[in-house]
Design a protein around this nucleic acid. Sequence first.
DNA 1: CATGAATGAGATTTCATTCAT
DNA 2: AATGAATGAAATCTCATTCAT
Lengths: 192, 192, 192, 192
Amino acid sequence: MAKLQKSIDKRNALINATIALVNNNGFHATPMSKIAKMANVSPATIYLYFENKQDLVNKTYIDVKAQYTAYAFANFDESMSVEQGFEHIWKRIADFKLNESESAMFLSQCDNTPIIDEPSLQEGIKHLQPLLDLWERGKQEGLIKPISDYLLYAYAINPLSFLMIAQKRGTFKLDQKQIEEAYEAAWSSIKN
Amino acid sequence: MAKLQKSIDKRNALINATIALVNNNGFHATPMSKIAKMANVSPATIYLYFENKQDLVNKTYIDVKAQYTAYAFANFDESMSVEQGFEHIWKRIADFKLNESESAMFLSQCDNTPIIDEPSLQEGIKHLQPLLDLWERGKQEGLIKPISDYLLYAYAINPLSFLMIAQKRGTFKLDQKQIEEAYEAAWSSIKN
Amino acid sequence: MAKLQKSIDKRNALINATIALVNNNGFHATPMSKIAKMANVSPATIYLYFENKQDLVNKTYIDVKAQYTAYAFANFDESMSVEQGFEHIWKRIADFKLNESESAMFLSQCDNTPIIDEPSLQEGIKHLQPLLDLWERGKQEGLIKPISDYLLYAYAINPLSFLMIAQKRGTFKLDQKQIEEAYEAAWSSIKN
Amino acid sequence: MAKLQKSIDKRNALINATIALVNNNGFHATPMSKIAKMANVSPATIYLYFENKQDLVNKTYIDVKAQYTAYAFANFDESMSVEQGFEHIWKRIADFKLNESESAMFLSQCDNTPIIDEPSLQEGIKHLQPLLDLWERGKQEGLIKPISDYLLYAYAINPLSFLMIAQKRGTFKLDQKQIEEAYEAAWSSIKN
DNA sequence: CATGAATGAGATTTCATTCAT
DNA sequence: AATGAATGAAATCTCATTCAT
């Protein structure tokens, strides 16, 4: 295996350990030593890849957020109609939240606490542009309510986080039928 | 001032300090010593009122959750029509999230991280029953979609948390017009 | 009940609580608050009867040591022969160590650690005089080895402490037959 | 110096500091910080070698007890006669108690208080077997009283602890003549 | 690059003692 | 005399980070 690859593997192992431990124990109960142990490296090695703990968690956030958006827009095509496009993206996001629930949980935790610093939060938001563009088109075509993107996101996308957490906690199960119902609710809330 | 009152005041001061500091710094960066300082007591005094840090944050959660539901259902009357009742409760909750944003932030942080233990989370959920009863009535009258309460909550109520956080971060401002738009979106998403 | 009596009762309750707790947990794990709780008084009340923790444990030691020697010499009569007198005292001490094992344990702990201050240790030794006098007589009569009282005590009396602790720990049981054997060993070790 | 050696040195420094401080101040007045200072390491370093304070004192006890028995049985040879063997071991133990009085004091403190946990006490007892075997032989040959090993130990060996403490406290001096007297008393107490 | 050992700084928690009542 | 509440000081232990190898 090439040296570079080994390096990337270690970085990934650290990122994954961070996600798993922060999800299960919370940021406050995730010491660097545990992260190192789970990633099978020495604590000192972490500092070869990241400046400090804050940097590690920031970078983890940015990485995961990038995965999330890449997943969301895979196979999306700007030639799709607004409704087709929205359904496509929405279902990709639903898939991500339910199948990649470790990653989704981590994002949810970061987005609701002050553990990520402001610049990294900004960095994470960047990649949502295609969805915003789609909504813009929808508004112009009169298909989507002419309201703030924040409102659209709050009603069309964010509820999936709540459902993912409920499912993770075991109090609720999202099967195919309920995903359809959720999509209905999402579309109803933003369509004109 | 009576002894009992002084005791209650101290407990409240501790709860409030906990909310403020956890909101601003996160649980991991909120030492007991800072909480004590902010509440104007000695660190040792905290342990007269709470067993340990975990207990303090659990009890804070339960307290705040109780305030939240009390606020939500104030002046609610089961004789109201389903739509009237829903609008009433929804707007109370919106008021709470936007006016009592410190409390709301704290709840959001607790509901998205593993800092509160399971029994306390359960304790906190108890008081939502009137809303669930209203939805049940709505379903029977054919006014509300016959879907899981989790889905209804995810779309009708939870988006307010997202909007509250966005507003707190200063990236977005919820004024009267947008509250009406949000209400429209909420109602659209769950009405039949 | 007279006021004075109530006062004495409280003092005794404190002394007894100290003995029980130090025996079971050791001095280092016996906080004043636990002593107070066990004696059914407020922590502050302890300071009405004793200057501080050191004073409490010193006084407890002196009290128990006095009980011990009183018990040891009860019914002893200087007109007894040396051997009769020794057997009498020895058996009283054996009785004390085995029946009043709480008290005996406490003394043993104090005599083998630096928890009691020097003046109180001295105070505790005082009352052994009758035994030393008996030995003196025994030496003059040629019945007892002409060796230091420390040696006599080490071999004739102190082994009972070891046996008491072994019994307390449950690894060994001292019944009547073994007490006789122990007496034999004690007498053999010091008799001329 | 090899890494391993430095590690062993640090562990030993910690063990020795523990012995010295517990002897002089008692367990309750021996904070980890003092132990660290005396061993010339940071308090945090203690936790690389021992799990916690209880573990440190347990391990110290086991170490010292092992030294004690190794010392006691050095040059002992099962081909010796019972009386020769006993005298040999007894004098080795006397040497240890008087020359290695720091270690002996520590053992005495541990054996008379609840500071060592049960498993570690058990661990410490293991190594006395050669003495018990010798006594067994003595009983079969009719040279030693047919009584419990606990009684034999209480009278033949344990008095040395009492004498060692008395000497340490300065109230009594064990010179060569008195050691012979003590040996006489010990042997008298257990011989048939 | 990689590490294990080490640690300073600080976290949580305990406790002997005091004080207003 | 008696107390419960309060606390300053200190105890145990943790952890992010560094450094010699």
